[in-house]
Write a protein that binds this DNA or RNA. Structure first.
Lengths: 383, 383
DNA sequence: CAATTTTCTTTACGCGCGTAAAAAATAAAT
DNA sequence: ATTTATTTTTTACGCGCGTAAAGAAAATTG
């Protein structure tokens, strides 16, 4: 057992404050004492809601009600509470609050890999939106592994979240674990779908966007080969592969799948290593490469550079390279990467909207909703 | 007030289980029922520690002790508890636990900007290390704003963390807010120092690393200009600027500071925009540019490419560009970026080690420890 | 103004667990 | 086997807050 910590104030000994009762006419005596930082300090520190109720002159149950929903109390009492709040800056103990509420204000956010700027960005957007709704976001990354994903769900379950926004790993996700979780807590999936799981899925329309970029590439030069990983974990990758094939067949062009080995989340590394191989061994039958995602494309571009192949859409080019996702860094590659964007603003917004409507309705929607957003062509220098 | 949610099991109505008492000889009756997934299920769900103590045949206080530290109970009782644990997979209610422990097992991790892969990576490392020590990491990003940083500290304070690992925004951080926080909870600063705040600072030796790369650049070509933001928020940037100046003077070379405007965290964008300007307006008196960090360098490289300036160390080069940090993406620029690494493995390790020793000792160290790790030169194609 | 509705106060209990103290049981040592 | 040291059980209370119920006070209505 650890000793109490003399140095810090958080672990200070408990005191029983139950005897404190607010009476009409009670007045805080500390109004004149001004703290070192110039903030007005109450006579003593507020330790709990009981004490805060006392100094604010309002009963504790009403104060409790206020913290749950400030608009649920009369305007005049709200003003008194908020006045006291300015003097004493008290905050309800989050553990005690959540222990007793059956519905916490926590919203879990799970992403497969936070070091990927794509997910970092979408997580950041979602976080802000969640805060805006008055909920408390808890962001967890699965670090690319199933075990961590399951661990994250377990961890979330134990904090009784009002709902969860989850971008699953994809194919490697443990379906049973996710299913069990979804049965317990309202969950909205985004980015990667797992069939029939969660209340809704919000994602990107890969069929639309891949068709878009394929048609663009075919219209402006040689039809593309499709550069991808052989066994991607992300289900979107399969959709992209399939759509690429369909579009090429429809247009009467050969389907050239360049499927490379490698797993994990080091996509740039894989794109670089395998791109180097593909280029140096002359495995392409075309001068145009569509990469399954921007991170692969970034690696591929590095490989092309190293091999001395000029990439671009000028006449002196040796290669055209395109990506998919409009990854935050794709603007700064050399040349800048032509790609097709995911509308992550909309995906983020719709995801939290959907989750919130489920939370507030308090019941499962009759049927699972799937929403896909279109991508836009982002023409830059590389293709 | 929200309705109870009929669909989900987490919000199920409470039941009073206080009457349940474990007696010697009590045996769980559910051992034969096997759940659909093949997991053995207890006869009924375990709702609290009382019930779990009952089915495990151990008293609740002892079970409580076990969960705090499994090695603190006798080997035989530990085995009995763990056997019961396999049957019933019970987990203590995290809110109830934390409410009553003066020292929670939570460790806060605050980074200034999680969408920056550098911080994402170091956060990932730290998270893993923290988990390895049996603590529970809570990762928060300040999204580049002071308000969010303060908000994060407030938020952390309310969950009574055993300690916090914090990479502050730097100059823009609110010193008072951080100071107050550090007075309440054991805090170790990393990456960016704030003078005298926190129990320790673990960071990178910018003087060493900048000297290293400056000397390398001077030895192998023209002395570098220093490309940086005029008013960086990060204190490391000032240290780098200063060291650059000192080294150049010591070596008898002109100090060429290229200080560009811009704020926020879109460093690539700033490097690109201002790099474009600097190059096209021919503002450099040398062919060698040392950027204050890799993200600026990445933008600068994009600008050089767009302007048709060949970057590298070959004879046909127009420019040499170097960065600092060994950012995860700097391997994949064109050409790959020559830079100097930060030893973030060591920084992460030492940070959590330091925090843990403070937590376990239970008292503030007599004096604040500052630890800096050396960087290594990473020679790649760009300089 | 009284009658009605809304809001607040009082009182009381519960949540799931930490933890202290004394008694009982078990293990280790003599 | 007895003494001693260690661990567990019993009992009991507290944490900070949610929340229900009944009565009191305030605001609204006519």
């Amino acid at each position: 057992m650890l000793d109490p910590r003399p140095g810090w104030t958080v672990g200070s000994p408990k005191v029983n404050a139950r005897k404190l009762v607010a009476r009409k006419g009670d007045v805080s005596r500390g109004d004149f004492r001004v703290g070192p930082q110039g903030r007005t300090m109450g006579g003593r520190k507020i330790r709990n809601m009981e004490e805060f109720a006392a100094v604010s002159g309002i009963s504790r149950p009403t104060v409790s009600k206020y913290f749950h929903d400030p608009s649920s109390v009369r305007q005049t009492t709200r003003a008194r509470i908020e006045a006291a709040l300015e003097e004493h800056d008290y905050r309800p103990n989050i553990f005690a609050v959540n222990q007793n509420r059956r519905l916490t204000k926590n919203v879990g956010i799970v992403v497969p890999y936070l070091s990927d700027p794509f997910f970092a960005e979408i997580a950041r957007n979602i976080e802000k939106l969640v805060i805006g709704t008055g909920f408390r976001p808890i962001l967890l990354s699965s670090h690319g592994t199933v075990n961590q994903e399951i661990e994250n769900l377990d961890s979330l379950r134990s904090i009784k979240p009002a709902g969860v926004l989850m971008a699953p790993l994809g194919r490697s996700s443990n379906r049973d674990a996710v299913e069990t979780f979804c049965a317990d807590v309202p969950t909205v999936l985004f980015d990667s779908n797992i069939r029939d799981l969660g209340e809704a899925f919000i994602g990107h329309d890969n069929a639309q966007s891949i068709a878009l970029i394929c048609e663009y590439l075919c219209r402006t030069g040689e039809p593309p080969a499709f550069f991808e990983m052989r066994n991607p974990t992300n289900p979107n990758a399969y959709r992209r592969r399939r759509t690429y094939g369909e579009v090429m067949e429809r247009m009467g062009h050969p389907v050239q799948l360049v499927q490379v080995d490698g797993d994990g989340w080091d996509f740039e590394e894989i794109g670089y290593r395998e791109g180097n191989r593909v280029i140096s061994e002359n495995l392409l039958q075309t001068d145009t490469v569509l990469c399954s995602n921007d991170r692969l494309a970034i690696g591929f571009l590095a490989a092309a550079y190293e091999c001395g192949r000029r990439v671009g859409h000028g006449n002196d080019r040796a290669l055209r390279v395109a990506g998919h996702d409009n990854h935050p860094f794709s603007r700064f590659t050399c040349p800048p990467l032509t790609t097709v964007s995911q509308d992550y603003t909309s995906i983020a917004e719709r995801s939290v909207e959907t989750l919130l409507s489920v939370i507030e309705s308090g019941e499962r929607p009759k049927r699972r909703i799937t929403t896909l957003f279109d991508g836009k062509l982002v023409m830059r220098g590389s293709a």
